[in-house]
Nucleic acid binder design. Sequence first.
DNA 1: TAGATTGTTAATCGATTAACAATC
DNA 2: TAGATTGTTAATCGATTAACAATC
Lengths: 216, 216
Amino acid sequence: MIELIQNYNSKKIYERLPIYVHFLNSIQENNISSTTISKSLNLGEVQVRKDLALVSGKGRPKTGYATKHLLKDIKKYMGMNHVSKAIIVGFGQLGKALYHYSGFSELGIDIVQAFDISITNDFVKGIEELERYCLENKILFGILSVPSMEAQATADKLIRCGIVGIWNFTSVRLNVPSHVVIQNENLAASLSVLVKSTLDKKAGNKLEKSKKTNIS
Amino acid sequence: MIELIQNYNSKKIYERLPIYVHFLNSIQENNISSTTISKSLNLGEVQVRKDLALVSGKGRPKTGYATKHLLKDIKKYMGMNHVSKAIIVGFGQLGKALYHYSGFSELGIDIVQAFDISITNDFVKGIEELERYCLENKILFGILSVPSMEAQATADKLIRCGIVGIWNFTSVRLNVPSHVVIQNENLAASLSVLVKSTLDKKAGNKLEKSKKTNIS
DNA sequence: TAGATTGTTAATCGATTAACAATC
DNA sequence: TAGATTGTTAATCGATTAACAATC
């Protein structure tokens, strides 16, 4: 008999692991249990345990996990043990806000430079310097916060500069070659989801269901 | 025989419908096919058709959907046919960027006012005016972009003001009563997902899998 | 009529949760 | 030993995709 077990680790776990990292950084205890984590973060107890088992599996019954050790394992798994350098293109209000956002560094991400067509202050370089800068500094990640009109052209340029991961804040659905990863951050759509979910709940639906009942 | 069919409409569809709205607003054609939509937005053809069937179901073989009609049906389904008023608390760089973000209005969302502890310009009111403003104007949605330290206390205050949907940009996992909907927008975690996914792809994994093979 | 396109059922894939055995 | 907690398998739930019938 041949048995094939595939232990998938879902994409969703990638969203939760940074949350654990942030939490573990904030506590003092040397040991922490999955129960405590799950309660603090409003996540399922089993889910937390499964996540941790996948990336660490060094928990001990009764005592839980060694905080430091767990943190190290999660960071290693997520590639946070070395710094990932990212640049921003489009230094409007959103680009500026992201540039100064403080939550990235504990996750091993460093926004090293911003670019824009107009140089408004010391933080930003002109777009014409983009290519040389990215190639010289081996930048892999780009944050796209330009006007929609320029989204695709700018993405194309980023890819020519060696960027392989694009965080896309524009409303344009980018076309990119298969070696490039796009993460869309559609703020307007996201707020819409909140509005609709809230209206659903007010109307008494968890999620709307339509039910057909056939009796034959 | 009793047959029970439940036609779930997933949460995920709520993320796609605004994307369709934006796309439909951008085209000139009177009719549009699901094939064209799916190609333009890089979505599965069947998925688009299923989404549209759920909210409209007025497509015609050979011609597709009447653009105007489809747009109306999606908007109605999502509650975009009336304006949802939202306020922002925390007028730092991120709050400012969101306040001036232009993508919300076509989705029926209007950010009507910003609040902060310090009144830095004409757009913002002092936090002490929050309660009266929200109650008087029947505000249901709040955007939380305050420092993490004040996140929970501010959320509590919002809820006392009648807010039932909170778009949470802080890294705090809020505790709220069951009638309140939270949508977490964890920017740091989101960029982490991009980094990890990109590193995966570079390493040649679609998604990492661990395989156990037992032969007995 | 032929072909393009919709709409729906069934199958597959992916993610979470429940149950419970293992262990410190 | 008892009890708290981990780790894992099986079951359930949710979302997408494939196959194909219906129809303009």
